[in-house]
Write a protein that binds this DNA or RNA. Sequence first.
DNA 1: ACTTGTGAAGATGTTCACAGCA
DNA 2: TGCTGTGAACATCTTCACAAGT
Lengths: 210, 210
Amino acid sequence: MRPEIIPEPTLVRLTIYGRCLNDLIEEGATLVASDELAHRAGVNAAQVRKDLSYLGSFGRRGVGYDVRHLSDRIATAMGLTKERGFIIVGAGRLGSALMGYDGFNKKGFRAAAAFDADINKVGQAIGSVTIRDINELSSFVQANGTEIGIITVPASFAQSVADSLVKAGIKAILNFAPIVIKVPAGIRYRQVELSSEMEVLAHYLNSQGD
Amino acid sequence: MRPEIIPEPTLVRLTIYGRCLNDLIEEGATLVASDELAHRAGVNAAQVRKDLSYLGSFGRRGVGYDVRHLSDRIATAMGLTKERGFIIVGAGRLGSALMGYDGFNKKGFRAAAAFDADINKVGQAIGSVTIRDINELSSFVQANGTEIGIITVPASFAQSVADSLVKAGIKAILNFAPIVIKVPAGIRYRQVELSSEMEVLAHYLNSQGD
DNA sequence: ACTTGTGAAGATGTTCACAGCA
DNA sequence: TGCTGTGAACATCTTCACAAGT
């Protein structure tokens, strides 16, 4: 089974499997069975096998999967074989935290620049980069061919920042601002809704029992 | 239609509708139709009506929904009618950013305390709270009846922090550490996978076209 | 004997389409 | 006429269960 497109829930789980496989490599394991991987990823074994089948069939029946090969296969599928630059727009606390987030580096994402509209912040360093004036955003993206833009500005500015990013030629946007943003077809868009996460927990706290 | 349980995708969308309704209130709107709300939330109108039907039927046919009433109804369903304290374990950059995240306050979540294992951080202030020693975690949760714990420690410490939180009596956990955590049944658990978000974008960047 | 790979079944979620009410 | 509320149709996702390979 090898369709051109992989379902999104599968993509998300593949990233989790990828991380579990890294752990297994560090532990010195060379083989892993679907139920071991399932246990580590918090899903069931049939799910793991179905998910992996989207990448081809390279497990060995009666044996399991080769840890290193599977790890490589997932990295390839997730497009992690080359370094990708990203920029962050909005150098507040959240933006600064993401700028130095180690999990991004580990997967080959490199913080290329940070931008802010606040003149007082411009010139300050966060991690290895200097905060730039937001007016330089377009020229920077064009000059560097940056693919991914992360939005961490207040909600009221998020749509216009997204528009600028798109106009500048960015290909994918990860939005942390609490507002649904409209992007043209062809631009990849994902949103992290921090408040929603808490609200869903609150809902469950209220409806006790199950 | 009013089943005891609301599907999780619906819960997440309800939080988005809630935010859109707040915007509408600020704009002075008193009525809203499902397609207007759908447009703002980035979903389709049938989805909005189906989602809202889980809360009962109080729209007016031919007219729409009363903005304020709908907003209240959603807040009630999401358990946002009372203030809830949360604590953050791991006072690094991400933890500090979340500590002061405005979106939480707006929905009635109150930062009650922050904890860290690093002795040098203990005593420092982030926002309105002081960083405490992680050994005080259990007594604090018990004394204050804190319901929600946010984990922003490195992956290698996350499971043991979660165990401590559970033992201390926390009811819900929001985990930002890049590792799947096991919690006993009855504890509400959600995970924000920052790296997964980027990896999914990278996947789509690779498989150009559609 | 053990574990994968996968059709088929089952469960869940989304969209359609229209009856019903203002 | 306009918009909701919702069964029914459709689409998607998950799990089962077992044939097939080692």
